[in-house]
Design a protein around this nucleic acid. Structure first.
Length: 500
RNA sequence: GCGCCGCUAGCUCAACUGGCAGAGCAGCUGACUCUUAAUCAGCGGGUUAUAGGUUCAAGUCCUAUGCGGCGCACCA
């Protein structure tokens, strides 16, 4: 780059960034490295705070430490300057620079070279100030990294868009952002421990699939050059996990990403984390117990309680046994007349029109029943509730109910009005499974982009004998939402955003 | 995908029926040895998202585009 074009570029940047770049150049010219390979660090701010938790006011410990952190406050007074450092876990500590201790040059350099947002290393004696604040009284300091961009205002919340687009800044500035970032791995660990305690084993199955199946959703399509063929990003791991069960991995689970090429909003992300599990010789009842256990153990693990406090301050109780309602029972109650899994499409349509539900003519009868349920009953589902007995025709991988006609042994778990998980008694008869998937593939042929494809290898696996089992899928992002009351984009560190 | 609303300084926001584009924090200069969003004095910082149009005059009105938010639809 020529000097001329460089200066043109420099002229373009905002004043505050220009000044910081000039400071960087000045440091380098003075033989100081604004980006050194290593800096002194003898302890963390957190460890130091814990070690000196009970110091009196205005105490000098005689102990020297080197601490690092990001400068988040800076108060340059005449001969005694203060700053607050913050570490990645949110712990803060004051550092002080006095003319007596540091000397004129060190104090002057600190005042002129350091800006809010810089990462620094400060070495000095651990003391408490006359106001009682635990501090490191500097004898020396150096940059760990010069920040070229100013931090946003500490005391005004960042706009939601900036928080999502610049999550690194959000993490620097906001406690809740840091807490949620740490909550997710804690919940994942709890899930894995819960599964481990129940002798489930974790498996990893393909994300790139030749056929998409295991759920009804539009997939993302990609292409493998080596085989010159299209592949699908998986919409669910179900068909591979069931292959594992056929092979004798009796209790399996997977926690990983699914991809669905559908709308994105406050509770939907195109890529989302899912825990899915299968329990041989279990059914929809045992898998419901397991699901409740997973959620309650996660709450206990991360909050120490089944009572969880949401972002808006409200408290939800996830403890005890949960409500169970029947899907058709709830519809019947809301309509005041009996509706079941064998109620005809025409009759369902009549009810839908009577209550003012606008009906898509493409809906099959089971879909219409589900829509009726959501329209009439969904607002009753704030507390954890298993909604049991979904229509067979919308549940192609689920066993028919052992006694109710037209109904499958499938439940949905609702918390806070959204669907957190779904569980089945899995269909294990390969002949019926083939019929169901054939129906799906006919729907696909008619242009239903969400219908499942006919997976011959999966059917072949079933024909070797699949044990009776319960299965469950739960959105990890949604579990975090249920635990925190936050939107899905808050629970995902880097949700998809369109480029600026 | 459709509808409504928004986009102004580094950040968060003002600017009445069109009439000199402002504040707080942040920044720069100076003062201050106990500050906690320090205080005091002074000073800078803007292609009002982008492109076009109407008008003597546009942040404000019109058109298009981009990005965002909310609602609807689809879905976990």
């Amino acid at each position: 780059m020529t000097e001329q074009s460089k200066s043109a570029l420099e002229d373009d940047v905002p004043e505050q960034m220009r000044i910081r770049r000039e400071k960087r150049s000045r440091l380098i010219a003075a033989g100081l490295d604004p980006y050194p390979v290593a800096v002194p660090r003898t302890t963390t701010l957190k460890a130091l705070r814990e070690r000196f938790a009970d110091l009196e006011i205005d105490v000098a410990t005689g102990e020297s430490e080197s601490v690092t952190g990001r400068v988040i406050f800076k108060r340059d007074t005449g001969k005694l300057a203060f700053a607050t450092l913050r570490e990645g876990d949110g712990t803060q500590l004051q550092v002080m620079f006095s003319l007596d201790r540091a000397g004129e040059d060190v104090l002057a350099a600190w005042k002129s070279d350091v800006d809010l947002g810089d990462l620094v290393s400060v070495t000095g004696e651990v003391i408490t100030s006359k106001r009682g604040e635990l501090s490191v009284l500097a004898s020396s300091w150096m940059h760990a990294a010069k920040a070229l961009r100013p931090l946003p205002v500490e005391h005004k919340p960042l706009s939601e868009e900036t928080r999502v687009r610049m999550r690194y800044v959000d993490l620097i500035m906001r406690d809740t952002a840091r807490d949620v970032a740490r909550l997710r791995p804690n919940v994942m660990r709890s899930l894995r421990e819960s599964f481990h305690a129940r002798t489930f084993i974790e498996v990893e199955t393909p994300m790139l699939q030749v056929l998409h199946g295991g759920a009804t959703a539009r997939p993302f399509v990609t292409h493998i050059n080596a085989y010159d063929m299209d592949l699908f990003l998986r919409i669910a791991p179900e068909l591979y996990l069931k292959r594992c069960v056929v092979g004798g991995l009796e209790r399996v689970y997977e926690i990983n990403r699914n991809f669905r090429n559908e709308g994105a909003d406050s509770s939907h992300s195109p890529e989302f984390a899912m825990v899915e599990c299968y329990e041989s010789f279990g059914d929809w009842n045992s898998i419901a117990d397991l699901t409740r256990g997973l959620v309650q153990e996660a709450a206990m693990s991360v909050f120490g309680s089944h009572l969880v406090t949401h972002a808006d301050g409200s408290v939800r109780n996830l403890g005890g046994t949960w409500h169970e309602i029947s899907l058709f029972g709830a519809i019947s109650k809301a309509l005041g007349t009996e509706v079941t899994g064998i109620t005809s499409y025409d009759e369902l349509l009549k009810h839908a029109k009577a209550v003012g539900l606008s009906v898509d003519p493409k809906w099959i009868p089971g879909k219409l029943a589900e829509e009726l349920f959501e329209y009439l009953c969904k607002d009753q589902l704030q507390e954890p509730t298993f909604v049991r007995g979904f229509p067979v025709d919308t549940s192609p991988l689920v066993r028919a109910h052992r006694s109710e006609a037209g109904v499958a042994e499938k439940w949905d778990l609702y918390i806070d009005g959204f669907e957190l998980a779904t569980g089945y008694s899995e269909l294990i008869d390969p002949i019926i499974q083939r019929e169901r998937l054939t129906e799906q593939s006919l729907l696909a042929a008619k242009g239903d982009t969400e219908a499942m494809q006919l997976d011959e290898d999966f059917l072949r696996a079933m024909e070797f004998g699949m044990p009776p089992m319960g299965g469950m899928g739960m959105g990890v992002d949604r579990l975090l939402m249920a635990l925190t009351g936050l939107g899905i984009r808050e629970t995902i560190l880097f949700p998809l955003v369109k480029p600026e």
